[in-house]
Design a protein around this nucleic acid. Sequence first.
DNA 1: GTTTCTGCTGGGCAATCTGTTCAGCAGTAC
DNA 2: GTACTGCTGAACAGATTGCCCAGCAGAAAC
Lengths: 156, 156
Amino acid sequence: MAIDHLDGRIILLLAREPRIGVLEMSRRLGVARGTAQARLDRLQSNGVIRGFGPEVDPAALGYPVTAFATLQIRQGQGADVRAHLATVPEVLELHTTTGSGDMLCRLVARSNADLQRVIDRVVGFDGIVRASTAIVMENPVPLRIIPLVEQAAEET
Amino acid sequence: MAIDHLDGRIILLLAREPRIGVLEMSRRLGVARGTAQARLDRLQSNGVIRGFGPEVDPAALGYPVTAFATLQIRQGQGADVRAHLATVPEVLELHTTTGSGDMLCRLVARSNADLQRVIDRVVGFDGIVRASTAIVMENPVPLRIIPLVEQAAEET
DNA sequence: GTTTCTGCTGGGCAATCTGTTCAGCAGTAC
DNA sequence: GTACTGCTGAACAGATTGCCCAGCAGAAAC
């Protein structure tokens, strides 16, 4: 599960040039192809690398508005609320957090006006007591993992 | 920028089997290879598909704890705070949101105890007035985009 | 009506990569 | 000293990629 320096370099390389092949990878890393192959396989079966799904930009799809909503859930309704939210395409992510029955979800919408529709759909469900929404204005640090990978790789 | 049904199927297919090649893709979709190639290129230059970076699981790297922190920023210190947070590897994501000088960031840590260290590092910076943290317990809906892609593809 | 564009098809070619297998070698554990 | 593990370097057939081309159909422009 621990990652060594070579693993770190593999992830770094894949992050920079995702469509790179194993052969080219082994050349860049200065190791045999079999080694690169084996490491990559191991990282994947380890679960360190979950996959290589395409990163789709919601904004480019026509959903430029992002918001985070904190939901307060009525006791015992958690499961229902989760199921409800899973059916809303604009809910990109949902977490349950510490605090009594709180959830945090990431929403997208076509516009600020459209966000209202989305929120209505989200909270229009029994079991949600209260919702407070924060609209994202800027995203100075987009979701990233590289610095963490580097840190994890150093610690070897 | 609008996505049609074929584009939608391409993204779906890539999400399911990311390492699939263009040739195999064209076979599955029942179109000529050139078409699949052209569509994929267009999706990428459109920015709809940002890339195919490896999805790394922080938990597998030894950071199983996730938390969201809401930060209250002193007026005019925004830029400094952003720069500060960008240097912390455990900060995976940072957004500025509506509300006076508020930011929302996603953190990971090695343990609940370690989270304290991370938070200290995050808030140990002039310009951050107050921080409130919510620890993630469950993640019923992991970051997803497929339902939204399907919805966008339908609307054609 | 006719011309021009654009997007898709289907095919071909050389260069490259993948999956797989093999033998050798060094460091480590027992 | 023996077994094990991880890495190297090499080989091979089969598949894929990047690239190019000609034909065709529908839409838009003239």
